[in-house]
């Protein structure tokens, strides 16, 4: 299977050389294969978000390298990587521009990876496509193309962000605890939608979650981080048989420390 993303000996420090120095990622080596849907779990401060942000290009990493389809992207910023990597944020307010309408947001997403010019931002012929795409979300948003995003609920916005991240097929989809800020019912809806979109488009995805049940339920591969290192990496059959108690036990064994259910969940 083709490797989409390859992370080689990734080290990251926050505040290096200061008294607050924090060695967050301690030599991560990871190959993400085409079609992988990976869920990343780990306790607070394990480095889940830092790892995801490193892949997105949110900050320059301390050392190591990141290759996308064999091309070194370590030095590229978010904007440069955006033609291949798309992202759904944890905060539903983060993924959309609130003062723009639904169709304007989608039009911006349609231009990901392309140059923008002086032609009309939202084109007439795009509207039909947007409507069809919004209809697949099943939230009735297909009739609200001209509604300002700011007037929509968190769940609706997160569903639109998911659509925006996949409306142009990304090589890699990053999901940053994207259902964590929603109520349980909406969270389930967004997760089901995520799974549907990923399987329909056969996407490669990398999902940070602190919900162990979600981590077990979705995706084909599960990675556990502990103190900046990968301690568990299970795929397919092995992963499918996992239960939450299994996972807790595994964590205890690998990390050599007692852990309560809560600290891993939160």
């Amino acid at each position: 299977m083709k490797t989409i993303l390859s992370i080689k000996n990734l080290q990251h420090y926050f505040g290096k050389g200061t008294v607050d120095e924090n060695h967050v990622l301690k030599g991560i080596n990871l190959d993400i294969r085409e079609g992988d849907f990976i869920s990343i779990i780990g306790g607070n401060g394990a480095g889940k978000s830092t790892l995801l942000n490193s892949v997105a290009g949110s900050f320059p990493i301390t050392s190591g390298s990141i290759l996308l389809n064999g091309q070194d992207i370590t030095k590229q910023n978010v904007m440069k990587r955006s033609d291949k990597i798309s992202r759904v944020f944890q905060d539903p307010r983060m993924g959309t521009a609130v003062r723009l309408t639904v169709e304007e947001n989608l039009a911006i997403a349609m231009k990901r990876g392309q140059s923008r010019g002086f032609s009309k931002g939202v084109k007439k012929q795009q509207r039909k496509f947007f409507k069809e795409q919004l209809a697949t979300l099943g939230l009735g948003l297909e009739n609200r193309l001209q509604t300002e995003i700011g007037l929509l609920s968190g769940g609706q916005r997160q569903a639109i962000t998911l659509l925006m991240a996949t409306i142009v097929r990304p090589e890699l989809l990053l999901l940053d605890e994207h259902s964590a800020a929603l109520d349980p019912k909406t969270s389930l809806l967004v997760m089901e939608l995520t799974e549907k979109i990923i399987s329909e488009q056969n996407l490669t995805a990398f999902m940070v979650t602190h919900n162990m049940e979600d981590a077990i339920r979705y995706g084909n591969r599960l990675i556990m981080l502990h103190q900046g290192q990968i301690v568990v990496d299970l795929a397919n059959e092995e992963k499918n048989q996992l239960t939450v108690p299994d996972l807790l036990e595994l964590f205890h064994k690998k990390s050599g420390s007692q852990v309560s259910d809560d600290s891993l969940l939160l």
Partner: peptide, 16 residues
């Protein structure tokens, strides 16, 4: 407009 509105989202969508 989107830059002023949400800079992270704009960059994630490839806006310079």
């Amino acid at each position: 407009i989107s830059t002023g509105d949400n800079i992270e989202m704009s960059q994630a969508n490839g806006i310079n």
